[in-house]
Design a protein around this nucleic acid. Structure first.
Length: 83
DNA sequence: CGTATGACGTGCA
DNA sequence: GTGCACGCCATAC
């Protein structure tokens, strides 16, 4: 069980319509200082079961998305996660 | 093992 | 509120 797998698991546990910041995810993953690694891991390793689009920045920004930030924004809007 | 990279975060000007 | 620079951790090569 690597930090990577832990992060993926945490992200997969995010409820629909709920958004968590990279820092929150890293904290739940077990390393509150690894928010850097969280983004890196999601960017390189993402699974179709991982709602990585629900992971946003602490400042409220969407951050980025493998399939395109537009898609992420759209998804969050559909889930009412953002305005 | 050492270096380079990254979807970040915080601090300061 | 905006822009720049530094620091942080884990992964991949």
């Amino acid at each position: 069980m690597s930090f990577k797998d832990n992060v993926l698991k945490v992200v997969a546990n995010i409820s629909k319509g709920k958004t968590l910041s990279y820092k929150e995810v890293s904290c739940l993953a077990g390393s509150p200082r690894a928010y850097r690694a969280v983004g890196n891991i999601l960017n390189k390793n993402y699974d179709p079961k991982i709602p990585c689009h629900r992971v946003i920045r602490s400042n409220g920004q969407l951050g980025g998305y493998n399939r395109g930030v537009v898609k992420k924004k759209k998804l969050l809007k559909q889930e009412k996660a953002i305005s």
